[in-house]
Design a protein around this nucleic acid. Structure first.
Lengths: 146, 146
DNA sequence: GATGGATGTAATATATCACATTACAACATA
DNA sequence: TATGTTGTAATGTGATATATTACATCCATC
């Protein structure tokens, strides 16, 4: 099971906004063209980013503005905005282990802290990368193209 | 999107085998009773663990033996045996970004190393925990119950 | 204030996957 | 051979990801 493409699409959107915001009006249609998907997919992701307070979308006229300095928005912020992880738990358990079994009634207590540490390690690494890294990285790649 | 319960079920299986192996014949039916699921679900997970070389399952007669010392089997070994992550990449991209767009044709190069680092952080943390930790943890929990 | 382009969102469709269940052949031991 | 178990195929159901159409809402501008 893998993490949905919405997360990388969201990062793609931020990269596009940064690269094209002065040159074009960055609409959902424009973004859909770069990502090669449907504009509604983009709009739904934009809604999630908007609900998380990361961006402002101009209704009617179109266009996206990022609400914070790029180095203050981490990959984790984007991930959290995009991935609706119920209860915040990455790992799923079987719903109803047998309480009559010594292992069944203790399996949660046994695993919870370890799984939390694993999830935390991933999230901590996500916090190390920001949209500012995306900008510099993309600038390097574009410079190399010439 | 969350990681399927098969991973935690697999850990549950190892805990059961360790706790009950001297007292009972640990069959798929027995395990299904503790986990509260269908025996076939268990058998399929056992097949994955067997294919990964972690356990041996006795055909016909039933019963499970672990192939290595518990402290040599990490959570990551179990995770890898269970989660069929195609290409080993946890994060999914949109399949066909637009090559005519400077961002679209560079998005993979831009993100790949960062996503790999994030995935690596999770996997490294998984390598820190072994089935031996499960044993001691479960013994502690059972001791507390008395 | 009417228009046109854009967003927000509902409704629907399809494919994939997780989990469950039945069925049965293959297998090992008594 | 009889019995209990595993291995696995087939099928069903529900959830989720992605795609698409449709349309109401919004806003700058003419």
């Amino acid at each position: 099971m893998r993490i949905s493409s919405r997360f990388t699409v969201a990062l793609h959107i931020f990269a596009c906004v940064d690269v094209f915001k002065d040159e074009y009006k960055v609409t959902s249609e424009f973004l859909a063209g770069s990502i090669n998907t449907n504009p509604v997919i983009i709009r739904n992701i934009l809604s999630q980013l908007r609900n998380a307070g990361l961006i402002t979308v101009a209704r009617g006229t179109g266009g996206i503005t990022v609400n914070k300095p790029l180095n203050e928005i981490t990959f984790f912020d984007v991930y959290q905005a995009i991935e609706p992880v119920e209860g915040g738990d990455l790992f799923r358990f079987h719903e109803a282990p047998n309480p009559a079994c010594p292992v069944g009634r203790n399996i949660h207590a046994l695993l919870d802290d370890k799984l939390k540490a694993i999830q935390g390690a991933m999230e901590d690494e996500m916090r190390k990368y920001t949209l500012a890294d995306l900008r510099t990285g993309m600038q390097d790649l574009l410079a190399k193209e010439e």
